[in-house]
Structures are given as structure tokens and as C-alpha cells.
Design a protein around this nucleic acid. Structure first.
Lengths: 188, 188
DNA sequence: CCTCCGTTGACACTCAGTGCCACCGGCGGC
DNA sequence: GCCGCCGGTGGCACTGAGTGTCAACGGAGG
């Protein structure tokens, strides 16, 4: 990893940490970009070189979940049934959230409770749906069914996230996902 | 209906028509609120008294679909299975879209193709999900399953809308929904 | 040492969205 | 008919998000 790359990564980390800390305390809307960059020690212009919008600084934190799903699917045997492939992909993503509980939980709670963040997250999720559906059609699934299956799986995903991030929840997220797939799996 | 109410409705119609016409031609992002209000003949300030955001002027056009779903569910017999209730609710909403094809189709196409509009629409849809899930739990469905069922049904809903609004599509939307429920229904 | 290139900061600008106040027009009471 | 009330409106100023531009800085390589 290059020096320049590490410097850029450092700026990203500083900005995301400042944003997350401020927004967790004050709330998303009332936290201004000016406050974030002041805390992080960079200029306002630099913020928008790294993030397309104020929402992006948090949504970006969950973006790697899409990569996790994609990679997981790629590693599954081609003959595996769609429902099983999807379950593994989502389980891997949720497992990653559970591992980094401290950070992921704060982000998910903030996203699910803030309308504009939820909106941007769901938009991102619809990109995941396109990706997942593409992976299924590549495995020979009918295009319409692939869209439905991907959409259904992601609906289960957010429902599990909602349960998991609910205050006072003691449920294991992967167990929740398994329960969801007990119901939904046969239909995919 | 009051005189004042009709005057307000007139302003809403004028603004939505101006917005829809401009955005369909130029695209959503490049259409400014100033242009919309100039076309509609009201002040900028008035626009934001009727719509919470620039996105809202289009998303609001689809808001009644939520009411259609709610009313449809209320009219179904209490003992009807959840899958059938949901199918009727969505079928009624989609039927309404099909009837007003000229306007609804333009709106749906614009919403599905514009990221920020899609984001706001999906956020609205997540409110529908809460409403639908509540209706199911009121009918005795387990809360987790109700959330899953509502999310799955709405995932089918957008998939059908996507097919229906695709350029050159000749599919009947209600038939598409029925096909989707052939797969998904048993799992709900 | 100099040049090239990527990153940054500063400034100016557009546009979305909000608070505030003054104004107008209908409507009921006197 | 006059007056006060009130919902809707327009104008204005302001904050904050997001973008284009340019000059300056600093490291990598010749």
C-alpha cells in the first residue's frame, strides 16, 4: 500500500470517525459538514472529494457489505440452489456486522432511525438487488424470479438488521436470518 | 369540498403538472424549483408550503397508493390468510396505476430512473411496510413474520413496477403480480 | 535541483430549504 | 357598511449542501 494511499485512508478514517461521533450525539440533520471537517481538521472542500454527500459518509461505511455478498456468491458452487446462495451471502454480511459490533451497530441504528439516511441506504440496497439478481440469472435463474428472489432476500436483510439494532435486543442476527429463510427460502 | 380546499387543490395540481412536465423533458436534477414555480405561477415560498422537498412533488403523487393498500386491507375479511390480504392490497394499488396509465407511468419511470427520487420513494415504501406489518399483526400474525411478509410483498411490488414501466413492456401489471405471488405467496 | 502530478485549501457560486414579517382577501360580529 | 380575525401568499434574508476553479504545497522521479 502506497504512502499516498495510506494518507487518503487516514483522511477517510478521520472524517468518518468525526461524523459518526458527532451524529451519534447530536443527530444527523443538525450536524453540519462544517462541524465534521473542523473536528477532522480538513477543509470543507476535501470532505466532498471523499464523499458525494453528507449521507454518504455513513452509507459508505456499509458499502463493503455489498462486496462481501458479491464475493460470497462467487465462492459458492455454481449448482447450489438460489435460496442457499442468497442465505450464505446475507449471512456473511450480517456476520461481518456482528463481528464489528461496536461500530456497525452505531451506524445501523443511526441509518435506520434517520429518514434521509434510510432513503440513501435503501437506494444503495437497490443496487445490491440488481447485483444479486444478476448473479442469479448468471446461474440460470429466470430474470423475473431472480429480481423477486433478490428483493425478498434483501427485505429479510433489513428486517433482521432492524431487529438486531433495536434497543434491548438480545437476538443473534444470524439466527434471525436463518429463521427468516426458514419461511422464505422455499419460495426462492 | 370547501372553496379554500379547492383553491389549495388547484395550486397542488398546477405545481405537480409543471414539475412533471419539466422533469420529464429535462430530467429531475437539472430542473430547479424556481423553474417549476415560474411555470406554475406561484412563489417559491408557496412551493415549500405544499411539498417538503423537490422530491416530494413526485413522491406525493404515489402517496395515495399507501391509502389504497390500507383501505383494501380494512375491507378484507379478518380470517383471510395474510398472503391473500397482501395480494389484494397490492393488486388494488397496481390496478390504480394501470387505470391512470398516462400519468402514473410517467411518474414511475421518472422515479425509478432517478437515484434521489428512488431513494425517497423507497423511504416512503418502508413506511408502507410498517403499516402493512401492523395490519398483519392486528390479524394475529407473529411480528417478525409480519415484517418479513410485508417487506417481501413490497419487494414484489417494486419489481412489478419496474417491469411494467420498462420501455417496450407489454406485460399486464396485475398478471405480473399474480405470477410473483404464485412463487412468494406460500411463504407468507 | 527541477519538474510533474496528485492532493489540498480557499473562494465564489448555485440551489434547496426555512424563518420571519407584511400583505391581501374572505368571513363573521357589531 | 365597518372592523377584527385568519388562512394563504409573496418577499426577503439566511443557513447549509454541493460544485467549479485556481493557486499553492509536497512527494516521486529524472
Amino acid at each position: 500500500m502506497n504512502l499516498a494511499d495510506r494518507k487518503r485512508q487516514l483522511v477517510v478514517d478521520e472524517l468518518t470517525e468525526a461524523a459518526l461521533q458527532l451524529m451519534a450525539v447530536k443527530g444527523f440533520e443538525v450536524t453540519t459538514v462544517d462541524e465534521i471537517v473542523a473536528t477532522a481538521g480538513v477543509s470543507r472542500r476535501t470532505f466532498f472529494r471523499y464523499f458525494a454527500s453528507k449521507e454518504d459518509v455513513l452509507v459508505q461505511l456499509l458499502a463493503y457489505l455489498g462486496d462481501v455478498m458479491r464475493d460470497t456468491i462467487a465462492s459458492r458452487p455454481p449448482a447450489e440452489p438460489p435460496a442457499v446462495v442468497l442465505r450464505h451471502a446475507l449471512a456473511e454480511a450480517i456476520d461481518d456486522c456482528r463481528d464489528s459490533r461496536d461500530k456497525a451497530l452505531r451506524v445501523v441504528q443511526l441509518v435506520l432511525v434517520t429518514p434521509s439516511l434510510l432513503a440513501r441506504f435503501l437506494e444503495r440496497q437497490s443496487q445490491w438487488q440488481t447485483m444479486l439478481a444478476g448473479a442469479l440469472t448468471a446461474r440460470g435463474v429466470n430474470e423475473f424470479r431472480a429480481d423477486l428472489a433478490a428483493g425478498t432476500a434483501l427485505a429479510a436483510f433489513v428486517t433482521v438488521l432492524r431487529r438486531w439494532s433495536a434497543p434491548g435486543s438480545t437476538d443473534d442476527p444470524v439466527a434471525l436470518l436463518d429463521e427468516a429463510f426458514t419461511y422464505l427460502g422455499p419460495a426462492l
